[in-house]
Simulated scan of single mutants.
Amino acid sequence: MAGLKNPAPPPASVSALVRFQSFDLLATLVAVVRNDASVLFSNSALEDALGTSRRMIVGALLTDAFTEPFQLQNALEGASENEFAALRYDAWLKRTGYDPLPVHVIITRTEPADEIIVEMVPLEQQARQDREERLAEQAQTNKELIRNLAHEIKNPLGGIRGAAQLLEMEMESPELTEYTQVIIHEADRLQSLVDRLLAPHRRPHMVGDVNIHEVCERVRSLILAEFPKGLRVMRDYDISIPEFRGDREQLIQTVLNIAHNACQALVDRIAAGDAQLTFRSRVTRQITFGKQRYRLALELHVIDNGPGVPDSIKDRIFYPLVSGREGGSGLGLTLAQTFVQQHHGLIEVDSVPGRTDFKILIPLP
């Protein structure tokens, strides 16, 4: 094991395993150590990060697992001498076969005084949590903005359309009615846009048993009907995924919006005959998102081999009216994120030229 030196580590005592077993439920890396940095307990997340078993970690010196061990040693000495109740700093954790992992270390003194909790939060995880928090706040702000804006637009829009109709009835020249028809047509188009903006807030949440693969198959049939040539739709399903409670129609619309956006980005590859869209379902365990820890979650990927999301909109792709396509409304992904958030989940995107992966995460029972 990288860094830790313990040729004959003693196994963790039963009492320590029982006392600290709740730490196994955490996504962060946790070790309970003595004042001399020897490990009393290591949780499962730390085992995974270090690439070794709890039996090898317990009894070893945790300081040996860091690229700069003196930082942890100084912190433990300060904690043992009651200089502080908690201390935070950034460090690098050694890993077998991998580059060092940047972590935010939190040292907490406990009772009895010779036991100290060392929590290590991977900085990439911290960045993800911060990003999720910003997305959730932005989604709520967008929701209120859209609802208020849509209501403000509806009233004058109806007046404009009605006035154009009355004006058309008074006109004697057929040529002039072309102008009123333009006004009526554009008013109807804006009304349709407003209705789409308000759709998630109007329709009640219809909860029932959902099989995610039935959702994917429905979307697959719709996509192939629209793009019958030049597109391969691949399926990579984990059929063990259980049904869960949710709104089937909302989830169909969510996956359809993402898949349809992907196909529009694949237009050149479809013309060339080598476009590919993949639906992949998996179960992920002990995952934290939306500031909450879940034992199980659905992980549904919609992957395409298109040009990727433009850099100019990557950070704003779920914002309303933001589109990377000429003539796009910029509402599809906003509605998809709203629908998934109503299922206590979220959508993430990872995109590079040649591969774009939209990942839908939804808690499972």
Rank of each mutant, 00 (worst) to 15 (best):
G3S: 02
L4E: 03
K5V: 15
P9F: 09
V18W: 08
R19G: 10
D24I: 14
L26I: 03
L29V: 01
L29S: 01
V32N: 12
F41V: 05
S42A: 15
A49V: 10
S53Y: 14
R54D: 10
R55Y: 07
A60W: 07
A60C: 02
F66L: 10
F66G: 08
T67R: 06
L76C: 11
E77Y: 08
A79W: 11
N82P: 01
E83H: 07
E83T: 13
L87T: 04
R88N: 09
G97N: 01
P100I: 13
L101M: 12
V103E: 04
D114V: 04
V121P: 00
Q126F: 11
A127P: 00
E133K: 04
E133D: 13
L135Y: 04
A139R: 09
Q140T: 06
T141M: 09
R147P: 00
H151I: 14
K154E: 14
I160D: 06
G162D: 12
A163L: 15
A164H: 02
L166M: 07
L166G: 03
E170H: 06
E170C: 07
P174T: 08
T177H: 13
I183Q: 05
H185Y: 14
E186D: 13
L190M: 15
R196P: 05
R203I: 11
V207P: 01
G208P: 00
G208H: 02
D209T: 03
V210H: 08
N211Y: 01
H213T: 09
E214R: 03
R218D: 07
R220C: 04
S221T: 09
L224Y: 00
D238M: 05
I241R: 00
I241G: 05
F244K: 02
R245F: 10
L251W: 08
L251G: 11
I252K: 15
N257E: 09
I258K: 10
A262R: 12
D268R: 14
R269G: 05
I270L: 09
I270Q: 10
A271H: 12
L277C: 13
L277D: 04
T278D: 07
T284K: 02
I287N: 08
T288F: 00
G290Y: 12
E299W: 00
L300C: 05
N305Y: 10
N305G: 08
I313E: 00
I317D: 01
F318W: 07
Y319H: 06
L321G: 03
R325W: 05
E326Q: 13
S329K: 11
L331M: 13
G332M: 02
A336L: 08
V340P: 01
T356K: 05
K359Q: 12
I360V: 15
P363Y: 13
